[in-house]
Design a protein around this nucleic acid. Sequence first.
RNA 1: GCGGAUGUGGUGAAAUUGGUAGACACGCUAGACUUAGGAUCUAGUGCCGAGAGGUGUGCGGGUUCGAGUCCCUCCAUCCGCACCA
Length: 930
Amino acid sequence: MEYRFQEIEKKWQHFWQSNQTYRVDENSTNPPYYVLDMFPYPSGAGLHVGHPLGYIASDIYARYKKHTGFNVLHPMGFDSFGLPAEQYAILTGQHPAKTTKENIARYREQLDKLGFSYDWSREIQTSSPSYYKWTQWIFIQLYNSWFNPTTSKAEPISQLIQFLNENGLSSAFLNEIPGIMDADIKPFTVAEWKGFTIEQQQNVLMNFRLAYLGESFVNWCPELGTVLANDEVVNGFSERGGYPVERKLLKQWSMRITSYAQRLLEGLDALDWPESIKETQRNWIGRSEGISVRFPLIKHEGWIEVFTTRPDTLYGVSFLTIAPEHERVSALCTSEQLEEVEAYIALSKQRSERERIADVNTISGVFTGSYVAHPFTKEPIPIWIGDYVLAGYGTGAVMAVPAHDERDFKFASHFSLPIKQVIQPQESHDFNLGAWTEKSGVLINSQLLNGLSVYEAIQIITENIVNEGHGSKRINYKLRNAVFGRQRYWGEPIPAYFKGDQPYMIPVEMLPLNLPEVDKYLPTEDGDPPLGRAANWKFQDLFEYEKSTMPGWAGSSWYYLRYLDPSNENMLAAPDKIAYWGSVDLYMGGAEHATGHLLYARFWCKFLSDLGIIPFEEPFKKLINQGMILGRSSFVYRVEGEQTFVSAGLKDAYRTTPIHVDISLVTNDRLNIDGFKSWRSEFKNAKFILEPSGEYLCGYEVEKMSKSKYNVQTPDELVERFGADTLRMYEMFLGPVEQSKPWDTKGITGVQGFLKKYWRLFHLNGKFELNEAKPSKEHYKILHKTIRKIREDLDRFSFNTGVSNFMICVNELTESKGNYREILEPLTVLLAPFAPHITEELWEKLGNKPGSLFNASYPTFNPDYLVESDYEYPVSFNGRMRFKISLPLSLNTEEIQANVLSQAETIKWLEGKSPKKIIIVPGKIVNLVI
RNA sequence: GCGGAUGUGGUGAAAUUGGUAGACACGCUAGACUUAGGAUCUAGUGCCGAGAGGUGUGCGGGUUCGAGUCCCUCCAUCCGCACCA
């Protein structure tokens, strides 16, 4: 009987759906296990074969866990707010909700065809009000919280108010608070605090809130008409769409993620994540330990504070450089320098972020005319302005030590400023060519530091700076607070309204704040975001609502929690359900979210944990990044000036132009000529120069999958031709999940052949028929060897070798006529996670209850069946294997040696010499050294 | 520049702790069955060599009885960050 995969797959998909086979709840005595895929954004293009790669792997693992006695949560949903749907809406006038709904339906249909074990009763969509109600709720909690530096935790803002009532705000306390460095807030006493107006007090509190409205330089994308977070900007262009991005000073809703910088960094160590992702996050957080040093101004009040990690070079300072945006710039600029400085600042304002990045090597700057005094030598040091200093990092000012910093060196060389050596470098180093930036060498020209190593000098000078009141130790982070408002329509409304300039949160009982209808998805004439078009967009008909919406990452920052209790109307998820399932055990998804989603989700998780809503600090225990699947484009070669196409093997004899051809017309590089002719009218009368075999061979190239390259492979088409089980196994067979690889259908027939062969094991003369006798030891051995390997493979997520091991097993069973019920029944359970449809069918035919396979327990490996009496020893001479000899495993080292030495082969290879040494590892190898 | 990862046949790859390199699959070659199929089966297939044999995991070196695996130098490719003081 033929393996009719289409019939079988349809039958079981229908069965699973109508019987709710994959539904899970908390009423189980089995331990819980949570397997999660990064939910997709439902784009108009649908899924291509790259998307399911991770889904298949996690589905196999989830099913495996289920078979081995876990209560497995394996949900799926859609990240359904976002720019593409809105861009499409602007073009067509169609409501984004409509296209989103259609796209979700299409995705769902494609996913269903692949036989995933998702519990769809838990489906969530970030754009549905019942979901974003809780996204808004979390936002309000963030607004009502601050980060207490003493406890390193988020606490209610009411506790801060109480603290300020009792203590006021000291500069020491202010210094300790991570994340508010860039805010302009001054210390005050209790009396001053109490004397503030309510508005003044609120303005102070705004500097502490974890979700806050603040003025800062933001990434503004004019084309998209919205601000973007740092991770949404790639090399000065928007990640979505690739439009230019500018710096702009704007009042914006932001997230004080920098408060959590230290905890986000520390938390990484314990995570079972790929090293590259952890490293990327560490890099993005960018912790650096150093000291801030105050250089007193000459002829002005106060000082310039710089941040440095190299205080050992303090005696090598020859000038200070401050950022063009530095707050003291205009005050410090003397009248002689005014014109030049103003011109420079105007120029650097004009330069977009993109230009600055593209133009790193151009050195520009200007002298302010003012000086500071060196804290120890009291020598005057000129203050320069340079745009290589970033306003947003450290103090926006650096002490320039040209001899030991590459950028300072270039700046000094360009403007002929002094270069003062304070570390004796390696002899070979030439100061005409560049700075000595190594942290090695002996200090010179540095008074009390002379003769010390760099490390010692850092310790001593730091102590002196602190003791003499010139500065304090400081830790800086590259991580910036994340801009949270988007001037777009298709996102969660920010649940705030305004009385005058003061924002207020709407009461949580009134959530959700529904996304209003608008006539157009464009900004208003006054430049307000699209929500400005909504009729009466006012709280209680009086106070204007916030018009920005939340960014794409808002909904995805906590969705893993909603799956635990998706329809709860009273809280984001019930505490007992959160306690039962816990955090995600296995998270599967792409590496492109390293600094976006994965960092924000960790931030919100820590916040919710501080609030006591969840009992864990990290959302995802183990993370696996599935690799990208690249497209494999096919080409035909048109002879120049003709409608003649020459096969790839013969093309070098002609002058040809390669043309992309739709990969659906190509099988194993062979062109479907008739299909090609009717593909496009211009090829209707095409002529062909064929290979001697009579075939037309196409050339190929590996590129990104894209419509314009005709290399997009949809899973639907392959499911149609080969079946879902074949596609599932083939995607796994391609190679390790973590690895990127080109898509190539070449090998898929091999996997299909395997399933056919497996199917044939159960059939004799076209009928389902098994050998009911007791299997031989040999057959048990085949089975148990496979059980062991498959379990090992699954435990280390090595799905590709798993598929291979199934092939080996079926090959061996076929060869040895091992069609015993006692062998094939456990094998069917073993294979079920990989190929759920064919195994369900055979499971039923074996006489089991339909649909019960999912709950069957996984076969266990019995070592007794693998006990061997003999072993084929490889015998090596000088490490090179020459021949094999089968010996009983019971032999000891001496007996093995005696046996090997008596072999004719051994005598031949010894060539009359006697071995210097004989290494024998029983059960492993024999090696003779001659 | 800094950080991470990866280099193995014609191709995708395997080799979990140092112990038979290339499992499994594609492709290719030859053959069988065949009114032909994108079907199935058999044999072969790293490279050089007629063979004996030699040689072989990016290059060069080291440790070891033994290295794809450990150590050092270099090269290439991919990814991330990048004027971060």
